[in-house]
């Protein structure tokens, strides 16, 4: 039977404690007998991009049944994603997902993202701040302010209005993944640049509300002054295009 199913890309850096559980969650949500799982989701290939972890992230991911791509050194979230997209572009699937390895994204939200993807959106973001969210997700003041600035820039420069553009919980159509695997520059920083590229290419972008669990392990990728620097770089890349 022709049933290509889903592909889930999970960038991971030193997440040995959580990555296995995250993979198991995704597989539980997306597999099982057709009558118990949501109609939108189908069997899934989970791809963990190990971004040069020094712990046993890769082993944990392989043991949980994921395809593991190992970067020999730590290149950062954006680079790991780019590799995931390049791999996904050469596989068969009908909807691709990106989620975090630290357990912040809840697998039970996957059907809603996939449904939005199937109903015509090329890029679906899971939003923590969507008006339909039961409880807005708490974030630090710097991050909140940065997200506001980025939202505004995206609205003015690219004409997309989003409540949570920095979300790392995505569902994508094939044209979107192919665009990313072709056009994301090496040195790609963040999902924001991807978002900007998708908007510029005229892809349909949508948001669905998601709940987000507090992170179960690991460290936020960037904090404090580095976070500010990170957003400045991202803003520069979004607003004038080119390389990050």
């Amino acid at each position: 039977m022709d049933n290509p199913g889903l592909i889930a890309v999970i960038p991971a850096y030193n997440e040995e404690n959580t990555v296995g559980a995250v993979i198991a969650e995704v597989q539980r949500t997306c597999s099982g007998p057709a009558e118990v799982r949501p109609a939108e989701v189908r069997p899934v290939e989970v791809v963990v991009v190990d971004d040069g972890s020094v712990d046993s992230t890769a082993e944990a991911a392989a043991a949980a049944g994921a395809t593991v791509l190992r970067l020999p050194v730590n290149l950062g979230y954006g680079a790991a994603l780019r590799l995931g997209f390049r791999y996904a572009a050469g596989r068969r699937w009908d909807c691709a997902l990106v989620l975090d390895a630290d357990g912040q994204h809840i697998a039970t939200d996957i059907p809603a993202l996939v449904a939005a993807c199937h109903s015509g959106a090329d890029l679906v973001l899971g939003s923590r701040f969507h008006p339909d969210c039961a409880v807005p997700y708490p974030v630090s003041r710097i991050r909140r302010a940065a997200i506001r600035v980025v939202s505004r820039v995206l609205r003015h420069r690219r004409g997309v209005a989003l409540t949570d553009p920095t979300s790392g919980f995505w569902a994508m159509s094939r044209p979107c993944v192919e665009l990313f695997s072709r056009q994301l520059p090496a040195g790609y920083l963040d999902n924001l640049l991807g978002l900007s590229i998708a908007a510029r290419a005229g892809l349909a972008i949508a948001e669905v509300p998601v709940t987000m669990a507090p992170r179960q392990g690991g460290q936020p990728s960037t904090q404090g002054a580095r976070l500010v620097f990170h957003y400045l770089r991202t803003l520069l890349a979004i607003s004038i295009g080119g390389r990050s």
Binding site: V49, R70, A79, L83, G187
Partner: peptide
Amino acid sequence: LSRSEQRIQILMEEVALLRR
């Protein structure tokens, strides 16, 4: 330096895909 960084990244992507 920017160009070198990009080349190194592409190289490492290839390494990861080939290893897989």
